[in-house]
Design a protein around this nucleic acid. Structure first.
Lengths: 257, 257
DNA sequence: CGCGATTTGTGCACGCCTTCACAAGCGCCT
DNA sequence: AGGCGCTTGTGAAGGCGTGCACAAATCGCG
């Protein structure tokens, strides 16, 4: 349906034709497909069926086919998808044909780990600079990079074309850092600080909050427990009488062992 | 539809017994509301309107009201929500009235940081044990906890009631670790390894992949660039063209995972 | 004591996403 | 060459989530 370009091994970089605007849900899954495809390529597979790829990516095969069809996919009926071709396609759509520069702000506990995270490098990114507001951390070398003071952000940004900013500071500092990133032209931010960022239109923010993930799991854990017949948390009248309150919920671990 | 029960007298005891089964999207937002509420409580607010709370949590007020209504909410028309009461409510629903024990497997680069992450502790969890398969790391003390060998998992699990397992190992080891966690009765897993885990029914897995987040941002960056008629590879150029609002946003912005 | 200002709770409509089911296309085997 | 089995791509249906808009409820004040 849409006219696509031939991704041949030759053409990379290059600005290009209009990207089909994919459903957000599809975009969020493409990286997963990409990872699965790389695994397949490494294990010597030349082609792969939607069923097999879907399994490897942990999704439904119909969903996968629809996702791929959105980007005007190149599958062959009766055969499957060409692994190498599909990798090129997805990498192109995701904008991974150029290795984007990432600036990481905040080299505390978490930031320190992120700076050394191999996954960033191996999957299309390049950590271009590290920043912190704490003078005592400035100058420290992490993974071959020297930590700069956040005040130098503008200077560095003028040299490196920073595509994405990663915020790994404490929450109170995050908004200020975001403002500075936006000021130097960054339009994509990955925020690890547990707070809401306010940014201008046109700037994308994605948030990762580790505690929230645990809390969601906690909910399901709680729900599972309450289904399997829990001691305390009786219905209706069960725990209303407790003055001190909260002890009423099952202090019991109900997960079957 | 939802039968709420009245706040039964005495003070503010979280008093909802049966867990209503909330929409998954709502569950994913509750932790965000909770965080915002704690902030409000610390700044001396006793009540809060849906509008104010929604802003603090970065969502739409109608959405917030609907979310809260699902858990049989206790708001007062014309006034707003009682902050302390709402905190109790949400914490109860999320199962945070008991401090759940977390087992962290893999104390490499990322795991090391997670072990020291204060957010886990401050938001309802307790790191009960650290594990690794690497003998050279066993015995190391991190943040007051000694790293145990993964083979000791069963032993420790028998002592501590582990509610949630966190996997921060390299991808190839993740499935094996997941199997071991499941074997000792863990039914909730947070997976940081970039791979799909296969687990039995009844076990919840949530995945956090840092590289995927960056790749999603990369897509939007790519798309934004392709709209504004890009030069081949000059990202930083966007600096001057911004003011005014060119972007066709409105649906972008912090998409939940 | 009643009225108006304010804010919650929700019915409803719309759009996105998922899933099913199947026709069309392709390669292989006879 | 022809038929058969396999796999893709997609129309259609159903479900879920979002946001609007408004009635119901509550408080404060005159």
């Amino acid at each position: 349906m849409s006219q696509h370009r031939h991704p041949g091994a030759s053409g990379h970089t290059g600005a290009v034709p209009a990207l089909p605007d994919l459903p957000e849900a599809t975009v969020a899954r493409l990286p997963e497909y990409l990872r699965a495809l790389h695994n397949l390529a490494e294990t010597g597979h030349d082609t792969v069926s939607s069923e097999a790829l879907a399994t490897a990516a942990g999704v439904n095969s119909a969903k996968l086919r629809k996702d791929l069809s959105h980007l005007g996919s190149y599958g062959t009926r009766g055969v499957g998808y060409d692994v190498a071709l599909l990798i090129d396609q997805i990498e192109y759509v995701l904008g991974l044909t150029q290795r984007r520069a990432v600036a990481l702000v905040g080299v505390g506990n978490l930031g320190h780990a992120l700076a050394g995270y191999a996954g960033f490098v191996s999957r299309g990114f390049r950590i271009a600079a590290l920043f912190d507001a704490d003078e005592s951390r400035v100058g420290e070398e992490i993974n071959g990079l020297v930590v700069r003071h956040i005040d130098d952000l503008a200077t560095i940004a003028a040299q490196e074309a920073i595509a994405i900013g990663v915020i790994a500071t404490p929450a109170p500092a995050a908004q200020s850092v975001a403002d500075r990133l936006v000021a130097v032209g960054v339009t994509s931010i990955l925020n690890f600080a547990p707070c809401v960022l306010s940014v201008p239109d046109g700037v994308d923010v994605r948030k990762v909050d580790l505690a929230i993930e645990l809390q969601i799991l906690s909910f399901h854990e709680h729900r599972k427990a309450s289904l399997t017949g829990i001691p305390a948390s009786g219905p209706a009248a069960g725990l209303t009488a407790l003055p001190g309150g909260l002890a009423a919920t099952g202090t019991q671990e109900a997960v079957g062992s």
